[in-house]
């Protein structure tokens, strides 16, 4: 049975109490995106499952939900968060320097279906900043390639300068396709939104798991193409983003119908979310 993401309800390790972490490194990624490498003030860094997120608390500014973007199989490594500057909290996080401290609660939420995808073909589709929450799942797959069938990664962004992790993507030993909406003169890759490329993939619909992360419109079109290939809603996984406060299912801020995005998600099977995707405003 594939429709339930792993680490479902009640699995979160995080709590309401932040732990103090220190910034080990600030890695600039693009003009508006950066990665914070964090280590705990005391003890070992947390363990996490691909797809989980933390609540990062920038003192004086507030808390934001940010997915973990690093390798889940590197023991003791610092915890990576790749952040796009949006407003108050993310700008405050952008201002942090190595040695500065911040509060971290987590990890929270469900994970990408890494176990359920064993033995199957896997398609990752990441749009914009959405590649960051997907990266731990890609690392996990690359670390255990023998467990999976054909692995493909499709990446889309608006312009070449918005593409994340370009230096390392070229080294991933799987089929990757990178496309931008607006090319520049020096761009030699694909041009156009990423979703039509899904149409041209060879897919074995009964033996494929898709994991998609990006803005909701992008996910909607990507899902549509996968369904046209004959894939089942329960084999397609997406992440949902909602404003979060408690992140542990108490406050109701992130509620969507009967689901709490913070604890029942953020990774959901499309089967669970298809009703909401069909709504105009959700």
């Amino acid at each position: 049975m594939m429709s339930t993401p792993e680490l479902a309800i009640g699995s979160q390790q995080g709590s309401l109490l932040p732990e103090i972490y220190r910034v080990e490194e600030v890695i600039p990624e693009t003009h508006d995106t950066f990665t914070l490498a964090l280590i705990p003030q005391e003890g070992e860094p947390m363990t996490f499952a691909p797809g989980q997120f933390n609540m990062l608390y920038a003192y004086g500014a507030g808390e934001s939900a940010i997915s973990i973007s690093g390798d889940p199989d590197l023991d003791g490594a610092s915890i990576l968060h790749t952040i796009r500057t949006a407003g108050t909290v993310t700008s405050a996080l952008r201002g942090l320097r190595p040695g500065d401290s911040l509060g971290v609660r987590g990890p929270f939420g469900t994970s990408w279906p890494m176990e359920a995808a064993r033995g199957k073909d896997v398609i990752f589709i990441g749009g914009g900043i959405g590649l960051a929450p997907l990266r731990p799942a890609i690392y996990r797959t690359l670390n255990r390639l023998e467990r999976y069938g054909r692995v493909r990664v499709l990446i889309g962004a608006r312009r070449p300068r918005d593409l994340l992790f370009m230096n390392e993507i070229a080294g991933w030993p799987v089929e990757t396709l990178v496309s931008v909406d607006r090319a520049t003169e020096r761009w030699r890759g694909h041009v156009g939104v990423v979703t039509p490329y899904v149409r041209n993939l060879e897919i074995d619909p009964g033996n494929t798991v898709a994991m998609i992360c990006g803005p909701e419109i992008m996910m909607r079109y990507a899902v549509m193409e996968l369904l046209n290939h004959g894939m089942r809603p329960k084999d397609i996984f997406i992440t949902m983003e909602r404003n979060m406060k408690c992140a542990v299912g108490f406050c109701g801020h992130c509620q969507l119908g009967s689901e709490f995005i913070c604890k029942d998600g953020p990774v959901f099977s499309y089967e669970t979310m298809q009703f909401w995707f069909a709504q105009r405003e959700f």
């Binding site: 749009g127 939104v193 979703t195 803005p215 079109y221």
Partner: peptide, 15 residues
């Protein structure tokens, strides 16, 4: 349809 999606800016933040 692809051109329309390209115009939409699928990947940008809502703002």
């Amino acid at each position: 349809q692809e051109t329309r999606l390209q115009l939409l800016d699928l990947y940008g933040a809502p703002a």
